[in-house]
Amino acid sequence: MSKLITVSPSPHIHSGQSVEKLMYGVVIAMMPAMLVSFYFFGLGAIYVTLLSVASCVGFEYLIQKFILKQKPSITDGSAIVTGILLAFNLPSSLPPFIIIVGALLAIGVGKMTFGGLGNNPFNPALVGRVFLLLSFPTRMTKYPLAEGFNTPLLIPTNDNLDAVTGATPLGLVKEGLKNGESITSIFQHNGINYTDFFMGSIGGSLGEIAAFALIIGLVYMLIKKIITWHIPVSIVATIAVFTGILWGFNPESYADPLFHILTGGVLLGAIFMATDYVTSPMNPKGQIYYGIGIGVITVVIRVFGVYPEGVSFAILIMNGFTPLINRYVKPRRFGKIS
């Protein structure tokens, strides 16, 4: 024989699945939500998304090439996913430097300091978002009104910030309850309408506004077997049950479960962020515990805390518990002697 034959341990075939395919699958799943954000926030959304993706990919490349001296692995698509997720968590009106700082935090601190893909304990996009939320609280909680391509691209000064932006429904409810209003009157007086939540014509960050687009993404990822149902379903179910109990207890001081599920990025978090491979538990049982944890913490923050919104914090907190869950929650072993 002219060339050498190959010898290797079994198995000798591979499914053809790859990191790239999975990551680009997630990107495809995020497309509907992205298009909805373009529709409602116009050029601002496009600019935030592009800048966020470009800076995430750019920082990953620069850090790998010049600081870690590794072969850059930006083609695997994970930086693109982080970039889009970060953009999904930002309002469309942010000045460029805030987005770049967010991307640097997400990739530099959230991912690369821990050794890059596969080693980060916390979801990088959320690290970026939470940093920005704490550093630029006004900028990060003022959302432009959804006016399609008429939405102002950049809102340069703090003076007119209030004129062209609004709060999220969750913010309105929180504010209203603080002022002693009842849920019914808050809903009436702010014109809160569930069809808008579903279709996306509400204020909010890019990715959280349209429930239907996020659900399309979920269905796509489930069909393509990119993720399993365990995490999204357990988060949503926990929130539904928990808020349902409170609502049943007093519907005038607690919003109903559907309101909680459709607003404030619960679906975005449950579908795209909590399911991040690296930072979520490794077996179905653990994933359900993780989902329940996120659900409970989210509701606690929303209902009893200062912030109107708690999904990001809940996911980050449960990310911290992931190694513990992996250590002590084991899959059901075959032939376990009970």
């Binding site: 994970s78 596969g118 491979y277 077996n283 084991k330 899959p331 072993r333 032939g335």
Partner: peptide, 22 residues
């Protein structure tokens, strides 16, 4: 064989293991 990349902790190996191992 494919080029070896870092584990992304996708847990696919856990879900396919017929013996319930990790």
């Amino acid at each position: 064989r494919k080029e070896i990349k870092p584990c992304i902790r996708c847990s696919k190996c856990v879900s396919v293991c017929p013996m319930g191992l990790e």
